[in-house]
Write a protein that binds this DNA or RNA. Structure first.
Lengths: 214, 214
DNA sequence: GTCTATAGACGGATAGAC
DNA sequence: GTCTATCCGTCTATAGAC
């Protein structure tokens, strides 16, 4: 939220338009957070920005377009959030600490706005799927996770899948069963330990098999 | 599906009623599977059993009551499915094999009916939450998982939470990203190995700390 | 660009005849 | 118990005046 819309031009009229679009998206986030993703209606969004529902069509061609913009917006917020946490890590932090901090940051990001979590990570809006362009933001995020794991020495694609499953599971349980607490957040260190131990022993196994096949 | 309704009496008239209720629920499962959980409307359910929508009110007091019945129904089907898999295990199967087979069975159960998965495990129906009675079926399932883990030597409540997160993560990734494939199903052995190794080392740690505190 | 008015569809639920 | 008819609400989206 508050992030400038990337596609806007520089003329004054286009600037105003981008500001209005931004205001509409911010209002939509507020509606979703307060009333739930289900009651995210054009009427209610418009009400928050002092408009009537049909006026929104001057800024977005459809409700799906608004949802697409929210989806991309949310993923960009996640990127920013994780980048900030990564930057704040001690330069010599261990892989264990890096992964655990990032995973905790991810969970907290979801807890900060359950409606956003549902929009980004569960397909919770009946009849809507992110467009291909919006989905690109999600893929970019996935790509970064892969880069990050490679950075701490995890390169096997199977391990990447494993990691997404571990993360998704912690987040899902936390959000479903203890949205304001830390019941699964507290399991992050366990999960990271398990995961790194597993990848290390897999690496040893495959190194051994490479050696044996000489 | 096809499971008799538990609350029916034995008189002929009550038997017919129970059969009609059963037919309505089966029709509802078919509608959900074919048209999606979102378009599970009373009109469409009624159409499948050759009725008009208002006639359903003779059998269920509201749409929510139908969803409650489906929810409980689905959990009972899960119980049956898992019990059958557990019964088919070799008597001397290892904890590793037992857990892995059960987890695979769970994932396959979800894959067999994505709409059922969404009803039971994601809160996918806008404006509906299972009633307390229906939710009891879910708690019973959770209780059984705890029993099962205790049976293979895992008794720490934190490990139970860990286990639910691992399962939920595998299922969620499989259903969201590869509903007809086995991309995360193939990771089950890895996950079970990780988990059992982790619980074993935790048990060793706490045994040591008990000993030290004497 | 913004409004009012309204189309057009779909939903759950109820009234009352049979 | 089942029907027809209907109420009343929701929603997205469009037409057309200003």
């Amino acid at each position: 939220m508050g992030r400038a819309l990337a596609e806007s031009g520089t003329s004054r009229i286009e600037l105003r338009r981008a500001e209005s679009r931004r205001a509409i998206l911010d209002a939509a986030w507020r509606v979703a957070a307060e009333s739930g993703l289900e009651s995210l209606s054009l009427r209610e969004i418009a009400g928050r920005v002092g408009m009537q529902a049909p006026s929104l069509y001057s800024y977005f061609p459809s409700k799906a377009a608004i949802l697409d913009a929210l989806f991309a917006d949310g993923y960009h917020a996640l990127d920013d959030h994780l980048a900030a946490v990564a930057a704040a890590l001690p330069p010599k932090a261990s892989a264990r600490q890096r992964l655990a901090d990032l995973l905790r940051a991810w969970i907290r990001f979801c807890q900060a706005d359950p409606a956003r979590y549902r929009l980004l990570f569960t397909s919770a809006v009946p009849g809507w799927q992110p467009s291909e362009e919006a989905y690109a933001a999600s893929l970019e995020n996935y790509r970064r996770l892969g880069e990050y794991l490679a950075h701490v020495g995890v390169t096997d694609p199977d391990d990447l899948d494993l990691c997404t499953a571990l993360s998704a599971g912690l987040v899902a349980q936390q959000m479903s069963n203890d949205p304001d607490g830390d019941r699964w957040l507290r399991r992050v260190d366990d999960v990271v330990d398990m995961f790194l131990q597993h990848t290390a022993s897999r690496a040893r196994r495959s190194a051994r098999s490479r050696q044996e096949s000489r």
